[in-house]
């Protein structure tokens, strides 16, 4: 009766299952974290700068200041996630020591290693990683990721890349299901994917972990679109707290943030109810301005980071 186990795959992937049908919101202050919690976020991602600001300000984007992460951990009762750089084992160790509930090994930050990701099996805390296609998703799961998200193109307010990545991963899952068994090894070879995980997807018709949308979601309709495509839930980065740019009064702006955050939460639950979505989408004011992906130079694309 005393064989208690922490940090097992079941405990990590099971935790990720609890986020399904929910919205995880990027926040940079304890006040934003409380707005997110009150709006019904299932978790918050504690950051120093949202991706839209990382794009504008440039420089090296690193793990957030531990004091800042701690302030957000103390401000809310819902789970708190935080980002570390790709391959930065020590940032991940620090975040685990701080007691964050989930680590995002994220392409939004400047990569620390241009060849290798973190061995996520070695941690008690679960990890989420971005993926643009099935091989990348299964490599991350092979390294121990307990949750996958699309990369999208963070900080653009443009959902097109998230749609591309979702269609790629989910389309490959459908294709794998339809394959004959002898075709799986060549698929694994072509996609650089671990063979046992390819077999799992073939047999189950899904990834072995939950699969969320991220990168460019700015409106309730965007969030519902990602659910409609078949993803399990949504990360919203810059889409909430970069909206309402025209409102200067801080109280009014917080109200606009809260309305948009709450509307996105409801849109994910009622994604297949167009009448409800129409009601939810009204009275939200101005969304974030957004960037066309074609206007970004090659070196400004975040989704190409990760190996």
């Amino acid at each position: 009766m005393n064989d208690t186990t922490i940090g097992s795959t079941q405990v990590k992937t099971g935790f990720a299952e609890m986020f399904k049908g929910g919205v995880i919101m990027d926040v940079v202050t304890p006040d934003q974290a409380r707005i997110a919690q009150d709006a019904g976020a299932t978790a918050v991602m504690a950051l120093e700068r949202v991706p839209a600001d990382i794009r504008v300000q440039g420089g090296v984007a690193r793990m957030s200041d531990p004091d800042m992460v701690q302030g957000i951990v103390e401000a809310v009762s819902i789970p708190v996630m935080a980002k570390c750089r790709i391959g930065h084992v020590v940032e991940a160790q620090i975040l685990q020591a701080l007691g964050v509930d989930f680590i995002d090994e994220s392409e939004v930050l400047t990569p620390a290693d241009e060849a290798f990701h973190i061995d996520k099996h070695a941690f008690t805390v679960p990890f989420v990683c971005g993926a643009t296609e099935i091989g990348e998703a299964l490599r991350r799961i092979g390294e121990g990721a307990a949750m996958i998200r699309t990369k999208g193109e963070a900080g653009t307010g443009n959902v097109v890349e998230a749609v591309r990545h979702a269609r790629s991963v989910l389309g490959s899952i459908r294709a794998l299901q339809a394959m004959r068994r002898e075709e799986l090894m060549t698929f694994a070879k072509q996609h650089g994917a671990p063979f046992d995980l390819v077999v799992y997807v073939h047999e189950h018709g899904r990834l072995p972990v939950v699969n969320f949308a991220a990168g460019g979601v700015a409106t309730p309709a965007d969030a519902a679109l990602m659910m409609h495509l078949g993803l399990d839930g949504v990360f919203v980065g810059s889409g909430i707290f970069k909206a309402a740019a025209g409102i200067t009064d801080p109280t009014e702006r917080d109200r606009a943030f809260a309305r948009r955050a709450e509307a996105i939460v409801k849109a994910v639950t009622h994604y297949d109810d167009p009448d409800e979505l129409a009601a939810i989408s009204r009275g939200l004011g101005e969304a974030m301005v957004g960037i066309n992906i074609d206007d970004l130079a090659e070196d400004q694309l975040l989704a190409t980071r990760g190996w």
């Binding site: 009766m1 064989d3 208690t4 922490i6 940090g7 405990v11 789970p79 509930d101 008690t124």
Partner: peptide
């Protein structure tokens, strides 16, 4: 709520 600790303390047991 969360009285057994944060996620790093989550566990399975018989």
């Amino acid at each position: 709520r969360n009285a057994y600790g944060r996620q790093v303390a989550s566990f399975e047991a018989a």
